[in-house]
Amino acid sequence: MTYFAGIDVGSLTTEVVILDKDDRMVSYAISATGANVTEAVEHTLGQALSRAGLARDRLNFIVATGYGRITIPFADKKITEISCHAMGAHHLFPDTETVIDIGGQDSKVIRIDGEGKVIDFAMNDKCAAGTGRFLEVMAGTFQVPIDDFGALSLKSKREIPISSICTVFAESEVISLIARNEPAEDIIRGLHRSVVSRVWGMVQTVGVPGPVTMSGGVAKNPGVVILLEEHLKKPIHIHTEPQIIGALGAALFAKKHFLRD
């Protein structure tokens, strides 16, 4: 049996997916990237191999992706996360025409063809606005666990708009609103709206989307998903583990390159 691994090293989390020759997901693992990429990769790969009951030498081809892809010396090939998210989303939801990936460090909107190949994409600029990091910083300001942040936004009865798009200035604005005793859920709803507005701007630049799949950790945030679906006027495909879509795409590329080589 041949096996293929995809490793996605993101700014917040590292994911590994192991596939067999029939594209079946044998195992996957997710862990925090932390300050040491090499350790994070070793740890996450080790977990995935352990869950699959495989030794590392059983992996026939490894593709690395994500911002830390350049730091994985044993990867057979490095491919950008844009191509990998496209391929992973297409594999899970074959009707996908647009992928919205909101990750920790950046967000991107990717248009894909019927084979999962990228035909256009847009990516946020250097600042953290419109990313998972923005929501994480704001959750910290409210001392709310990030996993509960989206659900809290859904309790809002009167959304408060946030005028600043810069994370640092938005945080100052939020602190002022807290000082005025504005309800937390209303401010949080406004924060979610600001993320979605940024992402929606990118959606517009790549054109009106058909079926949409969301990937990345923020896909688990119902506050963001609902606001995006409002814009799209249709439901979004979301996998139970949206964070692994990049690693899955990398593993699919690993198989493709192994067979081609």
């Binding site: 491919i79 950008t80 844009i82 191509s83 990228v118 035909i119 994409f121 990516m123």
Partner: peptide, 9 residues
């Protein structure tokens, strides 16, 4: 990454 993705595309 943007440039590399464009080249892949």
């Amino acid at each position: 990454t943007r440039v590399e993705a464009f080249v892949e595309m």
